[in-house]
């Protein structure tokens, strides 16, 4: 469904992505793991066209989205939903207005119908009666849920998750992991998750890819990744400070 070919990106002369190659399958949960600052978020922002690569391509059903202009890109973006690391809820709007936002902007549905969709999406992420609350009044976990409800409001084909459990306690992290699994099973959507949360990875991934020094160095199922002999991947999965990855 999504094929990333030899993607390169530098910022101020520093190579962040140095030839990323990855295939993301339709209807599966692909988890991209890697250390902080390895360019995982940069990769995700390329997939939805928020950043343009220096070279390389990203094919979505055969169309190279890196070559599209803003108008064509916006048509493609409607097939995506994205959950940002800090949730990125609009803090001047209520929860209901946040979730309704893509529907208000891109559909001609009457307000009553939009409200019904919002209620349904909020119910799907386990939130009831929060419609009139402001994002500032929500806990971190609730914000993530509202952001997920907004991301799936338009029934997208692909949902991108940028560190969905960062800043959450282990119990809330597990709740979010379940939510990701449940919504994916219900909606049969393609999920791409970037994280350095290994327990989350084991819980949700159909396919795991590790990004290291600007390249995908390992890709496979959870079992394959667990059995890998690659010392870099092993060190990361086991969370050891000693090994081929040097702590700066």
């Amino acid at each position: 469904m999504i094929e990333i070919v030899d993607l390169k990106k530098s910022f101020n002369g520093k190579k962040v992505l140095d030839g990323v190659n990855l295939k993301i399958e339709r209807g599966k949960i692909t988890v991209i793991i890697g250390r902080s600052g390895e360019g995982k978020s940069v990769l995700l922002k390329h997939i939805i066209g928020l950043l343009k690569p220096d070279s390389g391509s990203i094919y979505l059903d055969g169309i190279d989205i890196t070559k599209l202009d803003e108008k064509e890109l916006n048509r493609i973006r409607r097939r995506f939903g994205m959950l940002f690391q800090g949730s990125a809820l609009f803090d001047s709007m209520t929860v209901e207005e946040n979730v309704a936002f893509p529907l208000v902007e891109h559909t001609d549905l009457p307000m009553e119908e939009i409200r019904a969709v919002v209620r349904e999406k909020l119910r799907l992420v386990g939130l009831v009666g929060v419609e009139k609350m402001m994002p500032a009044d929500l806990s971190g976990g609730m914000k993530k849920r509202v952001a997920l409800a907004r991301a799936i409001a338009m029934d997208p084909e692909i949902v991108l998750f940028d560190e969905p459990t960062t800043g959450l306690d282990p119990i809330m992290s597990d709740a979010i992991a379940r939510l990701i699994l449940d919504t994916q099973r219900n909606l049969h959507t393609t999920y791409v998750v970037i994280t350095h949360d290994i327990p989350l990875t084991y819980k949700i991934a159909d396919c795991v890819a590790m990004l290291h020094q600007g390249k995908i160095i390992e890709c496979g199922t959870v079992e394959e990744i667990r059995r890998t002999s690659n010392p870099v991947v092993r060190q990361f999965l086991e969370g050891r400070a000693e090994g081929p990855i040097k702590v700066a």
């Binding site: 928020l50 800090g86 990125a88 609009f90 803090d91 893509p102 902007e105």
Partner: peptide, 17 residues
């Protein structure tokens, strides 16, 4: 604030210029 909390990126990701 919208820029540093990625709200502007969120707008673009939702196909809103």
């Amino acid at each position: 604030t919208m820029r540093v909390t990625e709200q502007i990126d969120a707008l673009a990701a939702m196909a809103v210029n």
